[in-house]
Design a protein around this nucleic acid. Sequence first.
DNA 1: GGGGTAAATACTTGCCT
DNA 2: AGGCAAGTATTTACCCC
Length: 323
Amino acid sequence: MTKTQLDLKDSNTGTSQSTTESQPLSSCPECDGQIVHDDEHGETTCKECGLVLDEDSIDRGPEWRAFHNDEKDEKSRVGAPTTRLMHDKGLSTTIGWQDKDAYGQSISNRKRTRLQRLRTWDERFRTKDAHERNLKQALGEISRMASALDIPDPVRETAGTIYRRAVEDDLLPGRSIEGMATASLYAAARQHGTPRPLSEFAEVSRVEKIRIQRAYRYASRELGLEIEPADPLEYVPQFASALDVSDEAIRQARDLLTTAMEVGAHSGKSPAGLAAAAIYAATHLTNEQLTQETVSDAAHVSMVTIRNRYQELLEVYAEEGYA
DNA sequence: GGGGTAAATACTTGCCT
DNA sequence: AGGCAAGTATTTACCCC
């Protein structure tokens, strides 16, 4: 989990939106509490009542018990990390291409031909059924496009997951692999809060824009993809730390947002824009006076949007009494 | 810097075949 | 199912104070 966060931040593009430990999905059917996903233990639970909604995902925690910290560090290193970018999650054994034995010595002719036959069969078995072959091609395609667009690894992983789900739900028949692969990547970028215009994907993809759009729409409906936190409050801590604002201002920003949401002034507006505007407005109310440009850069929202939003925010805030 | 506006663009939705 | 068109929000570009 922490690793994912770091990767996101470190990796270029300046888009440092990180999925924090509590990735909100929606609200709990039992008590309306916040739903959080715990990657380390592969559980999706309600923060309030502890209801477990999904526990089937992969547990990435160490499979050892550890009795003190050092031991934990040692024992949790057990092999390469799994990746969703390979059709078999990088778990299968591969037969090396070099004709060397375990000691690095070249091997005899007879053994070499035998090894060659093994490789052939190994390949055949590994990519046997249609789904696997499908995945293999699509994931390769996702990697290729992600590289071309400088998209960080965690996003690629997400794209892989989305694609995998699409295949599992039989969404592919009648649709192009390429289209769905591109759509997955597009969706993943959005989920990570670093959306790229569809046209960028269209440039590196082998399918036209509308194909991607269609596939995306289809997938997001059928899979119920959760696109970014719909709650502006989720963005506040993130922007705040990027901009280094005071706790006072953060509190103020939250206040602005909650009052705006009570009135319903937020519907239809982009949550990121609202959060950015709230931060901007808050720093003015607390005499920190960040410029619109600074906030705009950090939040990846245009100055114009911040202008429009923050005026609205102040308006409802004034109306609701407290000034 | 803050603030405004018009035109362009991104994305969604609803309607039609 | 898929294609088209309209509608909304956001961005870009340019201007003024």
